[in-house]
Amino acid sequence: MKRPIKKSTKGCDDPRLDYKDLETLAKYLNPQGEIHARRKTGYCAKCQRQLKQAIKRARHMGLLAFVGQ
């Protein structure tokens, strides 16, 4: 039987993610530098898009790595 996806209860509550806020963004990356999935971040679709955009901006500016160390 297929196990249902475990939903996080964390919620997002308008996180206002900024590409310069590296401490926050780094929490949502795994050691390989990949962005965590929604089921792990607990974000809604809108906030997950904000997170993705902020991380990609930070990567472009050389603030975050594309690939983990």
């Binding site: 590409y19 310069k20 806020d21 590296l22």
Partner: peptide
């Protein structure tokens, strides 16, 4: 290991990225 400096600014930005 970057000494992540405090970025107190809370900027609302929308897409116009040049990347």
């Amino acid at each position: 290991a970057p000494a992540a400096e405090a970025t107190e600014s809370k900027e609302e930005t929308t897409e116009a990225a040049a990347s």
